[in-house]
């Protein structure tokens, strides 16, 4: 089967200046004094990964191991310093729920705005409006400005918009930790539906239970390097044993 995601030898480097240089004056002074030395930070190092269509891949690793960076490289938000990431198909990135919401606008207006961020027309969103409202359980609050929403409400609306159409690839970063457990179950149910429909899913989570429940394959990142890549049971077992020791 064809690989829908192909990450080839990706290295991601960040310049960490000790202090931020934000103004031209500072920049020139620092340049004159030759203090413009950056410290390099390597978030990903020669990561290669290929994911087939329909696979559900979990990514585990401690904080700072490069999980989110990898997701951002795959979804095209970050361009890798070296190597390439090729993706075939539409991506729905759930890296943070409610990205692109304008907090001064009402929920209804935001549905259209956020839909267009994902590339959907007004007509498409109009058709799906009822479905979105029902899933988010926010029927009474659709004409309220989002700034008055609670964080759980924002997350629910964000999730329902992002998953309203069936993308080829769904990227989920830690977002299932929001909302009450009932809504979490609903989200998981929806993701499971998508998987059965042939959507490729990448999940980053610290909850190993969730990973074990949903994923068929797990990639373990440590300090920017792929430490292990294989069957869920094997990787999770080893990960648990190494990190809890």
């Amino acid at each position: 089967m064809a690989n829908v995601i192909e990450v080839k030898d990706v290295t991601m480097r960040f310049n960490m200046s000790k202090e931020r240089v934000d103004s031209m004056k500072e920049y020139f002074i620092k340049m004159m004094k030759r203090q413009l030395n950056f410290e390099e930070f390597i978030a990903l190092k020669n990561v290669s990964l290929s994911i087939e269509k329909g696979e559900v891949v979990g990514i585990v690793g401690l904080n700072g191991s490069g999980k989110s960076t990898l997701l951002k490289v795959i979804s095209g938000i970050l361009r890798p310093s070296q190597g390439s990431a090729t993706v075939r198909g539409t991506i729905s990135p759930l890296i943070e729920l409610g990205a692109g919401f304008d907090y001064d606008l009402t929920a209804r207006e935001n549905v259209f705005l956020n839909g267009s961020v994902l590339g959907f027309s007004k007509q498409t969103m109009q058709k799906k409006m009822d479905e979105i409202i029902d899933f988010a359980e926010l029927r009474d609050f659709m004409d309220v400005a989002i700034k008055n929403y609670s964080s759980g409400m924002v997350a629910r609306l964000g999730f329902s918009i992002a998953t309203i159409t069936r993308p080829d690839i769904l990227i989920v970063d830690e977002i299932l930790a929001v909302g009450d457990f009932l809504f979490q179950q609903k989200c998981e149910q929806r993701i499971a539906d998508m998987m059965s429909g042939g959507t490729t899913v990448i999940i980053v989570s610290h909850s190993l239970d969730q990973i074990e429940r949903l994923c068929s394959r797990v990639v373990w990142l440590e300090k920017g390097v792929v430490k292990m890549d294989g069957k869920t049971a094997e990787v999770c077992e080893l990960y648990k044993n190494t990190t809890t020791r």
């Binding site: 304008d102 001064d104 839909g115 267009s116 590339g119």
Partner: peptide, 19 residues
Amino acid sequence: KYRHLVSNLITRDLKVKYR
């Protein structure tokens, strides 16, 4: 793909400006 985004952002700006 992003035609709708541009038109939506413009209407948003209009709405926010004269809210």
